[in-house]
């Protein structure tokens, strides 16, 4: 009886959380999964909708824009996150020593992370404006040609990665720095006694020990970049053409601009499955390196 009472009280205390979770987490997720099997469109909301089976998912394979936006997202994840990791690791090693200037850098590096992506997007959009932006103006002062930061199909995706790099590399630095600080100094002392060079110390001590941390931060950033939308929306709107359009932006356009909520839901679930597969592979890798 006493046990039953205890369980009951537990349930009562947990109930609000469960209800909120259902209302704002589980229900929308299930509802959007169901929507992905329908032709629900806000443009025809009065006419109802019908079950279309896997049609939306099959349409994805013949939708050139979906394939292009998937390609773009893949490039952002591989190149963008890869570059963030390499530079993040390099800078973390540089500011590891407990000096005054390093402490200053650790604080300064936090600033971009604290800013909102939309504000950053607008700031960079003004700075990178081809004709009126200060960056091209500075280039012209030193007799260099202006760069079409946002209006070239080749440069614009790099610009997106550059802005994301500027904002999120500090996250890599801080995570890797914390990992580096947790490594016992005894390893380095032993390596010093054996006469190991700096490169050898990094390759045989630091890097392997930091590998689980590295895989974790890469996974977190990869998931974030796979969902990137705000910076692209503000900087280029996905253009020129569809050269910078990410899969999440395409999903947003399908759902909110074209009102095809059924199709947009199928895009959202495809992203979810892709991220889950990616995450699963990464976690298996992490286990192996343990």
């Amino acid at each position: 009886m006493a046990g039953f009472k205890k369980i009951k009280i537990k349930h009562i205390f947990i109930l609000p959380t469960v209800l909120i979770l259902f209302a704002f987490g589980i229900f929308p997720a299930v509802a959007s999964l169901l929507l992905s099997f329908t032709n629900f469109s806000l443009a025809k909301v009065g006419e109802g909708f019908s079950f279309v089976g896997l049609t939306n998912y099959l349409r994805l394979f013949s939708d050139a824009r979906f394939i292009l936006s998937m390609r773009n997202t893949f490039i952002y994840v591989i190149l963008g996150v890869g570059f963030q990791y390499i530079v993040g690791m390099f800078l973390a090693m540089l500011i590891y020593e407990e000096t005054k200037i390093n402490k200053f850098y650790r604080v300064v590096f936090l600033i971009p992370i604290m800013l909102t992506p939309v504000a950053i997007g607008y700031t960079w959009r003004m700075m990178l404006h081809g004709t009126y932006g200060p960056i091209n103006h500075l280039l012209s002062i030193i007799n260099l040609p202006g760069i079409p930061w946002l209006s070239s199909t080749i440069v614009a995706p790099l610009t997106i990665m550059l802005v994301d790099f500027w904002q999120w590399t500090p996250f890599m630095i801080l995570a890797l720095l914390a990992g580096r600080m947790s490594i016992s100094p005894e390893y380095y002392e032993a390596a010093g006694v054996d006469g190991a060079s700096k490169a050898q110390v990094f390759a045989y001590i630091t890097f392997p020990i930091l590998l689980p941390v590295s895989l974790t931060v890469i996974l977190i950033r990869a998931i974030e970049v796979a969902k990137i939308v705000d910076i692209i929306y503000v900087l280029t709107g996905g253009g020129p053409g569809v050269s910078t359009e990410s899969i999440t932006l395409y999903g947003y356009i399908s759902g909110v601009k074209q009102f095809n909520l059924g199709y947009a839901s199928s895009i959202a679930y495809t992203i979810l499955v892709a991220i889950m597969v990616f995450g699963f592979i990464f976690l298996r890798l992490k286990e192996r390196f343990k």
Binding site: S152, T153, G238, P240, G241, V242, S243, Q258, F259
Partner: peptide
């Protein structure tokens, strides 16, 4: 607007040489 939006993306792709 949907017709325009569909055209807009394709015009942008043609103008950018895609």
């Amino acid at each position: 607007f949907r017709y325009f939006d569909a055209l807009d993306v394709n015009l942008s792709r043609a103008l950018s040489g895609e």
